[in-house]
Computed example of a mutant assay.
Amino acid sequence: MSSIADNIGSVTRRIQKATLQAGREPGAVHLLAVSKTRPAEDIREAVAAGQTAFGENYLQEALDKIETLSDLPDIEWHFIGPIQSNKTRQIASAFDWVHSVDRLKIARRLSEQRESDQPPLNICIQININNEDTKAGCTLDALPELARDIGELPNIALRGLMAIPDPDQPEADLRLSFRQLANALRELKHSFPEAGPLDTLSMGMSGDMELAVAEGSTWVRVGTAIFGKRPAKD
């Protein structure tokens, strides 16, 4: 059985190869290890292998792990799950990044509840790129207004866009979904240069990271290929 360190090495090589094949600069794509449902010991093992950025979906589970691993100060915590209004205060204070902002109310609360002595909270707007009824996210049509409004808020830095395309669509359609997200980011940068750095595309997972990298991803979110299949829920 491969170790977590071996898996991180394998995924890193996949990212590097895809980056090279896409003609992009080395280091342009970062690995976000999706550690939801994984014990703190697995994260500690990943950190020992050189991984520092971890993505969590479930707030209380994440807070427990953040406390348990507080002796590892270099960990960068990313919240990538749905956000309830009553959870924003803890998310604003405990995380470095939030990838799943899809409405102004949530962004405003994160801005208001970020501690003044903390650096700005990095956020991405989640896009429902395939307009799926079962997925959260802003539509592409609503994106310009939302980005403009979020860009005016203090204490947060609008970094870019995130999407979870339908994985069951044909490869050509999946590539098109990634391309649409990249095009949307380029249009935002042109239309609202004051909105934020706008340098981030959070897209691609274990099964499609090469396609995402080819279309401009800067963060690939990988869980299974690093930690193995998730345990079945009770």
Results as ranks from 00 to 15, higher is better:
residue 1 M to P: 14
residue 2 S to Y: 09
residue 2 S to Q: 13
residue 2 S to V: 10
residue 2 S to P: 15
residue 3 S to N: 11
residue 3 S to K: 11
residue 4 I to H: 04
residue 6 D to G: 05
residue 9 G to I: 11
residue 9 G to F: 05
residue 11 V to W: 03
residue 12 T to A: 14
residue 14 R to T: 02
residue 15 I to A: 02
residue 17 K to W: 08
residue 19 T to R: 11
residue 23 G to I: 09
residue 25 E to S: 15
residue 26 P to C: 12
residue 29 V to L: 09
residue 30 H to R: 15
residue 30 H to D: 12
residue 31 L to H: 07
residue 35 S to D: 13
residue 43 I to H: 03
residue 46 A to M: 08
residue 49 A to K: 06
residue 49 A to F: 05
residue 50 G to E: 01
residue 52 T to G: 03
residue 52 T to Q: 13
residue 54 F to N: 00
residue 58 Y to P: 08
residue 58 Y to T: 09
residue 58 Y to E: 12
residue 62 A to G: 07
residue 62 A to H: 03
residue 63 L to E: 15
residue 63 L to S: 04
residue 68 T to D: 15
residue 73 P to H: 08
residue 74 D to Q: 14
residue 76 E to T: 01
residue 78 H to G: 00
residue 82 P to M: 11
residue 85 S to N: 14
residue 86 N to M: 03
residue 87 K to N: 08
residue 88 T to Y: 10
residue 89 R to H: 13
residue 90 Q to G: 03
residue 96 D to Q: 10
residue 96 D to T: 01
residue 96 D to K: 05
residue 104 L to E: 01
residue 105 K to Y: 06
residue 105 K to L: 12
residue 109 R to D: 01
residue 109 R to K: 15
residue 111 S to Q: 05
residue 117 D to A: 12
residue 118 Q to P: 04
residue 119 P to A: 13
residue 123 I to Q: 00
residue 123 I to N: 02
residue 124 C to F: 04
residue 124 C to N: 04
residue 127 I to M: 08
residue 128 N to V: 10
residue 129 I to Y: 07
residue 130 N to Y: 06
residue 133 D to S: 14
residue 135 K to A: 05
residue 135 K to F: 07
residue 137 G to A: 07
residue 138 C to T: 13
residue 138 C to I: 06
residue 138 C to Y: 00
residue 138 C to V: 10
residue 139 T to I: 06
residue 140 L to F: 06
residue 141 D to R: 09
residue 145 E to D: 13
residue 145 E to C: 00
residue 148 R to F: 08
residue 148 R to K: 12
residue 149 D to W: 00
residue 150 I to W: 01
residue 151 G to L: 05
residue 152 E to H: 11
residue 153 L to G: 00
residue 153 L to A: 02
residue 153 L to N: 00
residue 154 P to T: 01
residue 155 N to Q: 12
residue 155 N to D: 02
residue 155 N to F: 02
residue 156 I to A: 02
residue 156 I to K: 05
residue 157 A to T: 03
residue 160 G to M: 02
residue 161 L to A: 05
residue 162 M to R: 01
residue 162 M to K: 00
residue 164 I to P: 03
residue 164 I to C: 07
residue 165 P to V: 00
residue 166 D to A: 07
residue 167 P to M: 06
residue 169 Q to T: 07
residue 170 P to K: 10
residue 170 P to H: 11
residue 173 D to M: 12
residue 174 L to P: 09
residue 174 L to A: 08
residue 177 S to G: 09
residue 177 S to Q: 10
residue 183 N to V: 13
residue 185 L to F: 04
residue 185 L to P: 02
residue 188 L to A: 04
residue 188 L to Y: 01
residue 190 H to L: 13
residue 192 F to C: 10
residue 193 P to W: 04
residue 194 E to P: 09
residue 196 G to V: 09
residue 197 P to N: 09
residue 197 P to T: 13
residue 198 L to D: 01
residue 199 D to H: 09
residue 199 D to S: 10
residue 201 L to K: 01
residue 202 S to D: 08
residue 202 S to L: 06
residue 203 M to T: 03
residue 203 M to W: 08
residue 203 M to N: 07
residue 204 G to R: 04
residue 205 M to Q: 12
residue 205 M to Y: 10
residue 209 M to D: 04
residue 209 M to E: 07
residue 212 A to D: 11
residue 214 A to L: 07
residue 216 G to V: 01
residue 217 S to Q: 01
residue 219 W to L: 15
residue 222 V to K: 05
residue 223 G to A: 06
residue 224 T to D: 08
residue 225 A to D: 15
residue 226 I to M: 12
residue 228 G to T: 10
residue 229 K to E: 15
residue 230 R to G: 06
